[in-house]
C-alpha cells in the first residue's frame, strides 16, 4: 500500500503494510531513529511525534492513518517553541541516558505551543505520559519553565 504523507516538511511515499505502526515506519523505513520504541502500548511516550500538530504516540498510529497528513519528529521539530525547548534541554543538561528525551521534548513542545506559561500542575498533567527511567523529571520540569521564558 502506498501512502502519501508529509514528514518533517517533505512529501514522502510510504511502502508499508497498512497496520504498521508509524513508529516502525519512521524508524525502519525512513531511518528517523530519533523517535524511540519504549513500550509499544502508549504507556511510556518515548515514541511521541506530532500528527497535524497534535502530540501522538506513534506506536498507536498506523501507516494507513497518516495518508495526506503531516508528521513532525524530533529531527524536524524546529519552530520557535521547539528551538526554545531544545535550547533549554541543552542548557540544563536534562538528558542522562537520553533515550526518552525525544519523546519528552515532543510532548513539551506540544504543551508550550498551547500553554506558554505552564504551572507545575500543568506540567504534571502534560508530561505524565512520558516515562524517564533515569528520572530526569526534576530537570524536565525546570527546562519547561526555562523554555517558557523565551516562548
Amino acid at each position: 500500500m502506498s501512502i502519501s504523507v508529509n514528514i518533517n516538511g517533505e512529501k514522502r511515499k510510504l511502502d508499508a503494510a497498512p497496520d504498521t505502526p508509524l513508529l516502525w515506519v519512521l524508524r525502519d523505513e525512513l531511518g528517523l531513529t530519533g523517535t524511540k520504541y519504549g513500550c509499544g502500548a502508549a504507556l511510556c511516550g518515548a515514541c511521541s511525534v506530532h500528527l497535524d500538530g497534535e502530540v501522538v504516540r506513534s506506536c498507536q498510529i498506523q501507516a494507513q492513518d497518516v495518508e495526506g497528513r503531516t508528521v513532525t519528529t524530533i529531527e524536524g521539530a524546529d519552530d520557535k517553541v521547539a528551538q526554545a525547548v531544545k535550547a533549554a534541554w541543552n542548557k540544563l543538561d536534562v538528558a542522562q541516558c537520553g533515550y526518552c528525551q525525544s519523546g519528552q521534548i515532543m510532548s513539551a513542545i506540544g504543551l508550550l505551543s498551547q500553554n506558554a506559561k505552564p504551572t507545575n500542575d500543568d506540567i504534571d498533567k502534560a508530561m505524565d505520559g512520558n516515562v524517564c527511567r533515569c528520572a530526569t523529571y526534576h530537570r524536565i520540569r525546570a527546562a519547561i519553565h526555562e523554555a517558557a521564558k523565551s516562548v
Binding site: 528517523l32 523517535t35 519528529t73 529531527e75 541543552n90 543538561d93 536534562v94 525525544s102 521534548i105
Partner: peptide
C-alpha cells in the same frame, strides 16, 4: 556542559 546533551536533545544520538 555534558558532552552528550546536544545529540540526546536533537535525536541524533
Amino acid at each position: 556542559p555534558r558532552v552528550d546533551s546536544a545529540a540526546k536533545t536533537n535525536g541524533t544520538a
